[in-house]
């Protein structure tokens, strides 16, 4: 009886479409690592900075969504084939825009992001300078 239940459960969990997911199995490279540890590390580093297209603010490395799995499979396949991570990122950005990459591009619209910490320090120093007294002598 227990085995029957187990089988029913496996079928139920495996085949029931949840929301609008397909019932096809995920691409193999979505959930297995590349055999070469260095390549896998490269792929992992890239995946952490590519945004999942169908999620609410996650990288493809952290998402259970199907499309995220397919994107991971694509990244791993390309890295295994020798492509550079930046080229893969550029390919994705070409198709989806800068939004898909968590690494903000360095251009006219984003230089302020990197200048911000420095600017804040300067403003703060300005605000604080009157608290100090002059050194004697």
């Amino acid at each position: 009886m227990r085995r029957l239940l187990l089988a029913a459960l496996i079928v139920g969990l495996a085949a029931a479409p949840v929301l609008a997911d397909s019932d096809m199995p995920p691409a193999p490279l979505a959930y297995t690592q590349l055999p070469d540890a260095r390549q896998e590390a490269q792929a992992q580093a890239l995946m952490q900075t590519i945004r999942c297209l169908v999620c609410q603010g996650q990288s493809i490395a952290d998402s259970d969504a199907e499309l995220a799995g397919d994107m991971r499979a694509m990244v791993r396949a390309r890295i295994a084939a020798g492509e550079k991570p930046e080229a893969i990122r550029a390919w994705l950005v070409r198709r989806y825009g800068a939004w898909v990459s968590y690494e903000p591009p360095l251009d006219r619209t984003t230089w302020l992001l990197w200048a911000a910490p420095v600017l804040f320090v300067l403003i703060g120093l300005l605000a604080a300078r009157r608290s100090f007294r002059r050194r004697r002598g």
Binding site: M24, A27, E66, L67, D70, M71, A73, M74, L92, R95
Partner: peptide
């Protein structure tokens, strides 16, 4: 099967 062409578009 693996959304590759979908992504390419």
């Amino acid at each position: 099967d693996a959304s590759q062409v979908q992504m390419a578009f």
